[in-house]
Design a protein around this nucleic acid. Structure first.
Length: 415
RNA sequence: GUGGGCGUAGCUCAGCUGGUUAGAGCGCCGGACUGUGACUCCGGAGGCCGGGGGUUCGAAACCCCUCGUCCACCCCA
């Protein structure tokens, strides 16, 4: 019986792995330009961490977590998201003794859902958290950083949407206003929303069904019900984004799935992701550190769905380094290739990606293998070349070959 | 958790209202071509038709169960 990967968990193979590496590298570069430093946190945390932060009644906590009891009897959970562990680490390591921390993370997250396009049980996020900054301009700067990153990856046709969710002061009043509005419209909502209107009325605003969109047309918005402080903050974010020439839309109906968000919420959407359309999302969470028994620190962050982002990018634009295959014929040529300071060392020291063809087969079959490997160029060293001090250089695409010095070959490959 | 589509060669798929040796294209291996791939030609290997049960003289096909997978709902990055 063959053993396969478990449902919703997948292998990232060569082509995708190369793309991922580039995506990671670029994130490190761009986030680094904004002063963000990497933090690596555990994949497993105490279950309580996620219950307290994400929210007891959210779907994630209620039915999507990989929770288990360890041998000691503690309840542990594979992290379903990255913000809570980062904030936990921030508090635990007293990183707040520095007034502002800029942290980013990358790694796998786990949610027990039915897999579909753009949704897997093990998926990856790269996220950034700015801890200790209250000013609305800091929200905008982080959004800008994300935009720059996505632009540099060549992501086309994305939309940035922002909204304000209010704070502890104004959110309850808004909820009441929305409930009042929905009260005599309940019958116009879709079945799902009818069912959950009491528990989570904000969801009706986010619902994709035509009925709900119609019924909630004139629903009160969080923006109109924002308190003075939230309203001022939201205006500040918008102003800064405009100054930065970041293109965004205001979506008063956008809500967040995690309970810890306050004030600014934003989302980057794109088409081509199937039923999913969110590539990245985030927002402000000013109460989270306190919730985890740390000092009160205002924070802003986001997470990018790595699989979703990779799906939108053109693989051909990445990993363009030329591939060279070296074929050596006869013991002397093999020695000349493999020995210290030999042909392979010389080529690799020059920065070329070289694959040595180890088999003892015929030139023909070595050439065949080189072709299968996707070689751009093949180098052949045999008795003749050894005597002359040259190497045969074949351009596999053009089908042309020349005999020349190794130094010329390095120049040609790099050209 | 709910719904729908799909499971046939390494891959993508065809296979009629059930009918006897299950096919194609691509890929793979070998040869034409013993220092040259890709192209061309010739030859070849490769299938518990996802698994189990049932109906039938006969099942890849029909029925039931099961597993897997994809997509959608839900939810989210």
């Amino acid at each position: 019986m063959q053993i396969n990967a478990i449902r919703g968990f997948s292998d990232i193979l060569s082509e995708d792995a190369a793309l991922w590496a580039e995506m990671e590298n670029l994130a490190r570069e761009v986030f680094g330009l904004y002063g963000f430093e990497e933090i690596r946190v555990p994949i497993v945390e105490r279950t309580e961490l996620f219950k307290r932060t994400i929210g007891d009644t959210t779907d994630i906590v209620e039915k999507q977590m990989y929770t288990f009891t360890d041998l000691k009897g503690d309840s542990l959970t594979l992290r379903p998201e990255g913000t809570a562990p980062v904030v936990r680490a921030y508090i635990e390591n007293k990183l707040y003794t520095v007034p502002v921390q800029r942290l980013f993370y990358f790694g796998p997250m786990f949610r027990y859902e039915r897999p579909q396009k753009g949704r897997y049980r093990q998926f990856h996020q790269i996220g950034a958290e700015l801890l200790g900054e209250l000013a609305p301009s800091s929200d905008a700067e982080v959004i800008q950083m994300l935009e720059i990153y996505l632009d540099r990856l060549g992501l086309k046709d994305k939309t940035i949407e922002i909204n304000t969710l209010g704070c502890a002061a104004c959110r309850p009043a808004y909820r009441d206003a929305l409930l009042l509005f929905l009260k005599d419209k309940v019958e116009d909502l879709c079945e799902n929303c009818q069912r959950r209107v009491e528990k989570n009325p904000l969801r009706a605003l986010d619902c994709k069904s035509a009925k709900c969109i119609e019924a909630t047309q004139n629903a009160p918005s969080t923006i109109d019900h924002a308190c003075a402080e939230c309203s001022e903050h939201f205006n500040g974010v918008k102003d800064t984004l405009e100054k930065m020439a970041v293109t965004f839309e205001i979506n008063p109906r956008m809500v967040r799935g995690l309970d810890y968000y306050t004030k600014t919420a934003f989302e980057v959407t794109a088409t081509g992701l199937g039923a999913q359309n969110s590539v990245a999302a985030g927002g402000r969470y000013d109460n989270l550190t306190k919730e985890l028994s740390g000092p009160e620190v205002p924070c802003f962050g986001f997470a990018i769905g790595f699989e979703r982002l990779a799906m939108l990018l053109n693989k051909e634009n990445f990993n363009k380094a030329k591939k060279v295959v070296l074929i050596a014929l006869g013991d002397d040529a093999v020695t000349a290739a493999l020995k210290k300071g030999g042909t392979l060392d010389t080529l690799r020291e020059a920065g070329l990606r070289v694959i040595f063809e180890h088999s003892e087969a015929s030139v023909k079959s070595k050439m065949k293998k080189a072709n299968k490997l996707g070689a751009d160029y093949v180098l052949i060293i045999g008795e003749d070349e050894l005597k002359e001090g040259t190497v045969t250089f074949k351009d596999m695409e053009k089908g042309e070959q020349v005999k020349t010095q190794l130094s010329d070959i390095i120049k040609m490959v790099k050209a």
